[in-house]
C-alpha cells in the first residue's frame, strides 16, 4: 500500500504557537507533550499528523517490541535488560520516531496490552501482547478529542505518563515495560472539559483560533485546494522548507545539552511560580526546560529572559486556576511584571 500523502507541516498557515509547541516537543521529548485546544477546523489534527514527516531518526534496539533506547540504561524492557546483564551488546538499528494514535474508542486492554489470545489457544502458554502504550514508547502518543476519552482509559494513561512505565497486572498477565511518550492531545473545549489530573500531565498548552485576517484565510483556502488537486506536486513544492525545518530540529537536538541557564533566570522561574500560586514544582522545571529548548531551536548558547517569557506563555495557561466570574485565568501582565522585576 502506498503511504497516504500528508499535508506538509510547513504549509500550514499561521498557528505559530501550535507549530512551535509541537516542534519543541520533538526537539526535547522530556517537555511533557502539548495540549491543543481549539474550535473545529483549525488544523489541529492536520498539524499533529504532519509532524510525523519531520520526526528525526533515532537509535533503537533491533527487533525490540518497545524500540528501547540502547543508550538509555534506565528504561530498557526486560528482554533488553537481560542482554545487558549478560554483558552482551544490544543490536542497534536506526528507526524513525512515529506518531501513534490512540482512538477515543480504544478499550483499556488495547491501550495497556493484554493476554495474547491466539498464542494461549494455540500453544496453551501465556504471552503478553503489547498494546498502544508499547507502540508509543519513545514516540508521540496522539489522542484526538482527549476530553472525550473514557475515564478508566484516562486513569491508565495517567499511570503510565507519570512513571514512564506501563505496568500491566490483568487478565492473567503480569508485565511491565517502558512507556515514555510525548503526549499530544487535541480537544474542542465546547465539547466538555478535560480532567484536571490529566491536564497537569501536559507540559505545554496552546489555544488555537481560526485566522481572522482575510488575506490569511484566503491563503488557507488556496493551499488546501492546491493540495487536493495534486498532493504530490503540492508536497514537492514544500520539500525544501520541510528539509530545512527537519535540519533545524536535528541541530537543536544536538545543541540541547550544551545550553546554559543563568542562576538568576532559574530564580525568576521560581519566583514566577510562587507569585502566581501554582501547585507544585513541575511548572518551574517545565518553564526552564522549555526555555532551554526554545534557545536551542533559535541556535543560541544560553537562555535569556525572552526565552523564559516565551516558555511561560506555553507552560502556564493551563495550570492557572480559574476563579468564578473572572474572564481569564491567566493574567499575562502579571507574568511580565514578575519576570521583569527580577531581571
Amino acid at each position: 500500500m502506498k503511504r497516504k500523502a500528508v499535508f506538509p507541516f510547513t504549509a500550514i498557515v499561521g498557528q505559530e504557537d501550535m507549530k512551535l509547541s509541537l516542534i519543541l516537543n520533538v526537539i526535547n521529548p522530556a517537555l511533557g507533550g502539548v495540549l491543543i485546544k481549539g474550535e473545529k477546523g483549525t488544523a489541529k489534527s492536520t498539524a499533529v499528523r504532519a509532524l510525523a514527516e519531520l520526526l528525526p531518526a533515532m537509535e533503537s534496539v533491533h527487533n525490540c517490541r518497545f524500540h528501547c533506547d540502547p543508550n538509555g540504561i534506565n528504561y530498557l524492557c526486560d528482554d533488553c535488560a537481560a542482554v545487558i546483564k549478560a554483558h552482551k551488546k544490544l543490536p542497534v538499528e536506526s528507526i524513525k520516531m512515529r506518531v501513534v494514535e490512540l482512538p477515543v474508542s480504544a478499550t483499556e486492554d488495547r491501550v495497556v496490552g493484554t493476554l495474547d489470545i491466539e498464542h494461549a489457544i494455540k500453544h496453551g502458554e501465556k504471552k503478553f501482547e503489547p498494546g498502544i502504550l508499547a507502540q508509543a514508547n519513545r514516540n508521540i502518543l496522539y489522542v484526538d478529542e482527549i476530553n472525550l476519552l473514557d475515564d478508566h482509559v484516562v486513569d491508565v494513561l495517567l499511570d503510565a505518563a507519570a512513571m514512564g512505565i506501563n505496568t500491566v497486572e490483568r487478565e492473567g498477565v503480569s508485565y511491565s515495560h517502558p512507556a515514555r511518550f510525548v503526549l499530544v492531545g487535541t480537544m474542542n473545549p465546547e465539547e466538555g472539559d478535560i480532567r484536571p489530573q490529566l491536564l497537569d500531565r501536559f507540559g505545554l498548552s496552546v489555544i488555537v483560533k481560526g485566522e481572522h485576517e482575510p488575506d490569511k484565510r484566503v491563503e488557507v483556502i488556496k493551499r488546501r485546494l492546491a493540495y487536493e488537486q495534486d498532493a504530490d506536486i503540492f508536497i514537492a513544492g514544500y520539500s525544501e522548507q520541510q528539509n530545512e525545518l527537519a535540519g533545524k530540529i536535528m541541530q537543536a537536538r544536538q545543541l540541547l545539552n550544551k545550553i546554559t541557564v543563568d542562576n538568576k533566570l532559574l530564580e525568576s522561574a521560581a519566583r514566577l511560580s510562587i507569585g502566581l500560586g501554582v501547585d507544585g514544582h513541575r511548572v518551574d522545571i517545565t518553564v526552564i526546560k522549555t526555555a532551554i529548548t526554545i534557545a536551542a531551536f533559535h541556535n543560541k548558547k544560553a537562555v535569556d529572559l525572552d526565552d523564559i517569557k516565551e516558555a511561560a506563555r506555553l507552560v502556564l495557561p493551563h495550570r492557572m486556576r480559574r476563579r468564578p466570574f473572572e474572564d481569564s485565568g491567566f493574567d499575562w501582565n502579571k507574568v511580565e511584571n514578575l519576570l521583569n522585576d527580577n531581571a
Binding site: 483499556e108 501465556k126 491508565v156 512505565i165 505496568t167 497486572e169 490483568r170
Partner: peptide
C-alpha cells in the same frame, strides 16, 4: 506497583493455565 488496571485474578493469584493445559 499495583497499577490501576489490575484485575482480581492477577492480584490474588489463580490457576496456572500452562500447567493445566
Amino acid at each position: 506497583d499495583l497499577p490501576l488496571n489490575a484485575t482480581e485474578d492477577i492480584l490474588f493469584g489463580s490457576i496456572d493455565i500452562e500447567a493445566a493445559v
